[in-house]
Amino acid sequence: MEKIAFLGLGRMGLPMARRLAAAGHPLTVWNRSPGRAEGLTGDRRAGVTVAATAAEAVRGADVVVTMLSDPAAVAEVAGRCAAQLAPGALWIDMSSIGPRATAELRERLPQGVVLVDAPVIGSVGPAASGELVVFAGGEEADVDRAWPVLERLGRVRRCGGPGSGAALKVVVIGAIVASVTALGEVMAVADELGVPREQAREVLSVGPLAGVVARAFGTEADFPVRLAAKDLALAGGGPVLRAAREVLLADPSIAERDLSAVVQVPRAVAV
């Protein structure tokens, strides 16, 4: 198996790295907070090396996987380690950074190093069980090479050429986040009008908004509100997406809570 360097052991990165280690990939991991690597314990730790720096992690790697929080983090890490990549290396970026930052990352890579953009839909549970949805963009041969790694992490969808996976992720997550945020507003209206929340939820859950309701009232996801707001910023868009982002940023107390907090935390609206 190809040697993999996995950079970023946050909420999503750690369980994803575990899956690759469990599959037998020679794995070197790095995280800005070194203690996170302690999560790779037990039998899964066999064959796992913890690097002190990003540059050390990617040195000699055939494949580099990044799972980082935002475009700035990806740019910073690339700046630390890209020069250590050998020609022929494959960089798989699974972060949610949008097509513009993906193109900038491609420009930073040394000649002979190729990039596949492969952001995911799904939270910590699917990351641990290998049930993420992976949007893969890149040259066909490069996606073929990335496939054995990606399919270990979830169901892979070919999106097209370079940047297409990053672009589709922006579209899909923008729809999800804006819809859940709008549902939070609707539930606030229900509170103001005296409609019991359970009654409103029951009726909404059997209509065309069933999927949104399920996500909004779910208890297993772990997608912080601050990252949802970041993803809406990547989408740009018109007044609806901008307004949804403003709502998410308005209450700092829910910034680290799952997106469902925007629905489940009662708030006042004018009706």
Rank of each mutant, 00 (worst) to 15 (best):
A146S: 09
A127G: 10
C159V: 15
R152Y: 00
G137Q: 05
W147G: 11
A128M: 02
V116A: 08
L132E: 09
L132V: 05
C159I: 13
D117E: 06
S129F: 01
R145C: 06
W147C: 02
G154L: 07
V149E: 01
V113K: 09
V120K: 08
V134A: 01
V114G: 05
R152P: 01
G122T: 11
G138A: 08
V113M: 13
V113T: 13
S123P: 06
S123F: 10
L132Q: 05
D144R: 08
P148Y: 02
G161F: 08
R155M: 04
V149W: 00
V133Q: 14
F135L: 15
G160R: 09
C159S: 10
A118R: 09
G130L: 02
V143K: 07
S123L: 04
P148D: 06
G154T: 05
R157Q: 13
V120S: 11
A141I: 01
S123D: 04
A118W: 12
G122V: 13
V149P: 00
W147A: 10
V143G: 01
R145F: 07
V113H: 13
G125K: 11
V113I: 12
L153N: 01
L115D: 13
S123I: 12
W147I: 00
G122W: 12
S129V: 05
R152T: 14
V134Q: 04
V116Y: 03
E139L: 10
R145V: 07
P119E: 11
P126V: 06
L153F: 02
G160P: 05
G154Y: 08
V120M: 15
R145G: 01
E131L: 02
G138R: 11
R152I: 08
G137A: 04
V156C: 14
V134R: 08
C159H: 09
G138W: 10
R158E: 12
E131W: 00
E139K: 12
L115G: 11
C159G: 06
G161K: 04
V134M: 10
L115V: 09
A118L: 11
A136L: 03
F135A: 15
R155S: 06
R155G: 00
V120P: 07
L115E: 13
R145L: 04
G122A: 14
V124R: 14
G137K: 01
R157A: 13
R155W: 06
P126I: 10
V120G: 11
V133L: 15
S129K: 13
E139A: 14
V113S: 14
A141G: 14
V134E: 05
D144E: 15
A127R: 11
R155D: 03
V143Y: 08
A136W: 01
V124A: 12
